[in-house]
Design a protein around this nucleic acid. Structure first.
Length: 489
RNA sequence: GCGCCCAUCGUCUAGCGGUCAGGACAUCGCCCUCUCACGGCGAAAACACGGGUUCGAUUCCCGUUGGGCGUACCA
């Protein structure tokens, strides 16, 4: 199988999907691509993968772009600045995928499938029950052309699936993992075009990478098992395939894939706490080079210099916040002049209007300016240092507080757009559902979020802090209260 | 369950047949010092297990165990 011309100019991309808070894992993969491009005098591009119309939002897209810019990872082509291979947002490319899907249909490499999600679910359930791997059973594989047209004419919803070889295996060389062999019978007949006409990741990704002349696809290890589908598509289209490089995933302390449930994963969480982007990039960059001995404090330029994509670790590294802390501290005291440091602090305090909003909310609540740190300081603190005593003024029992915290946490995750109104609406709904007065539900939240019962308005505070910081504070509070519940208040 | 992948101090790692298994973070101790940090010095701390191959395995091969990812009309 041919791969891209090794003399072609290097073009790499970061392809985030705007379906949630910008993730440090995205920054990690983006940094790799960015450094790779720099190393090879190549081009680093940004493409928005918003083919999941139900979860993607323009707000998240803006946040992703902002977060990546905050990291200092600048792209040469992207949805915000355009470029010769645009558009760079897959939803804007929707119509481009149809002819390719038709081509596969015409060549017999793909077929229409009219199975309902319900049937597919039942099918998988049955397969699982009988100990077989869940896989499309091929019901629509041999529909006659007339059947397809009549079903289409009848307005039946359909998807397009790709055909997969039944024997042998897909062998390929990964830039990180080396030779990999995956049997075809473990590969499912992947949906290429969804019922809503949008392509799936697999389809859009291959077509866009080809059209955008991407030479190296560097992405998370979670995609390794999908490579056969992608390679097969390149073959079906008769295109050269790029070089694949799968990066081991960053892990939670328990070694599972880094997730917000177990760890703060939002880039905005780290910026809110006062980590500087240089330190975060320095920290993430350390995973892409082998420092046997010597200085680990590095600027982006030094990272690019020492970057070594040839010899990457294949096992996932735990996101070690203590090492990040150490690096961040060193950046603060060694890399910044007094002036630079002061400027950074001011910029940070004003980020997201944190300080400005805090002052606005404080004005009517203080008699002396000196009360500000106590009243609004929680908006700037990285750690509340919460102790059981902080809950003294909350009338509920520790058990009830814990119940409230544990109910609120998952429900706040459901909030689509994080703002004062949506937070208030959700919390009122929770109180109603729990059949408690609003103030009863809110009382422990004031303490969890601000560290005190005397505080700024809760909904505003939560909006200013941002969902990732609030998530973490609720988690910490639950832990503190749980320890009280055990020993009596 | 099935497929793929991974495996050195608590954590990140160096090692690519012969090393007292090196460094960094964290931890602990000492020094510096008006406190706390910073900084300096030092300590403790690892080759998952079992078979091979070899004069010799952390290193190469095979198993076992453990872990991860995937198994969607999500990416």
């Amino acid at each position: 199988m041919s791969t891209s011309d090794t003399n072609a100019p290097v073009r790499v991309r970061i392809a985030p999907s705007p379906t949630g808070e910008p993730h440090v894992g995205t920054a990690y993969i983006a940094l790799f691509n960015y450094l790779f491009a720099r190393k090879h005098n190549g081009t680093f591009i940004l493409r928005i993968e918003d083919t999941d119309a139900t979860r993607s939002t323009p707000e998240f897209e803006t946040k992703v772009l902002d977060a990546l810019k905050w990291c200092g990872l600048e792209w040469s082509e992207g949805p915000d600045i355009g470029g010769p291979y645009g558009p760079y947002r897959q939803s804007d490319r929707k119509d481009m995928y149809q002819p390719y899907a038709q081509e596969l249909l015409d060549k017999g490499h793909a077929f229409r499938c009219f199975c309902t999600p319900e049937r597919l679910e039942q099918m998988r359930e049955a397969q699982r029950a009988s100990g077989k791997p869940p896989k499309y059973d091929g019901l629509c594989l041999h529909l006659k052309a007339e059947e397809v047209t009549s079903k289409m004419a009848a307005g039946e919803s359909s998807v397009i699936r790709m055909k997969i070889p039944t024997e042998g295996s897909c062998d390929f060389t990964d830039g990180v993992y080396g030779d990999v062999s995956i049997p075809w019978d473990s590969v499912d007949m992947q949906v290429l075009i969804k019922g809503d006409g949008m392509p799936t990741y697999h389809m859009a990704n291959v077509i866009d990478d080809h059209l955008m002349k991407i030479t190296h696809v560097a992405r998370g290890e979670e995609w390794l098992a999908s490579v056969p589908k992608h390679i097969l598509l390149y073959r079906y289209f008769g295109w050269d395939q790029p070089t694949f490089m799968h990066l081991s995933l960053m892990r939670n302390a328990d070694k599972s894939k880094l997730s917000k449930r177990k760890n703060p994963t939002s880039i905005s969480y780290y910026s809110a706490l006062g980590y500087v982007p240089e330190a975060l990039m320095n920290f993430l960059g350390l995973f892409f080079m082998q420092i046997a001995e010597g200085e680990e404090l590095m600027t982006m330029a030094e990272l690019a210099e020492k970057f070594d994509p040839e010899n990457l670790s294949k096992s996932g590294a735990i996101f070690d916040i203590q090492k990040l802390d150490w690096l961040n501290g060193r950046w603060l005291r060694e890399k910044f002049s007094e002036e630079e440091f002061t400027a950074r602090v001011l910029t940070w305090a004003m980020e997201n209007d944190r300080l400005k909003e805090g002052l606005r909310l404080s004005q009517s609540r203080i008699t002396k300016l000196g009360e500000l740190p106590d009243l609004a300081g929680f908006l700037l603190k990285s750690d509340l240092g919460l102790e059981p005593a902080a809950f003294a003024k909350v009338k509920s029992s520790p058990e009830e507080i814990l119940e409230i915290l544990n109910t609120v946490q998952p429900d706040l995750e459901k909030i689509f757009e994080w703002n004062v109104e949506s937070i208030e609406a959700e919390l009122r709904a929770i109180a109603e559902r729990m059949d408690k007065k609003l103030k009863v539900v809110l009382a422990p939240l004031f303490v969890a979020v601000s560290g005190s019962s005397r505080s700024l308005p809760l909904f505003d505070s939560m909006a200013i802090l941002g969902r990732s910081v609030v998530r973490q504070r609720l988690k910490v509070a639950a832990k503190v209260v749980a320890s009280m519940a055990g020993s009596g208040k």
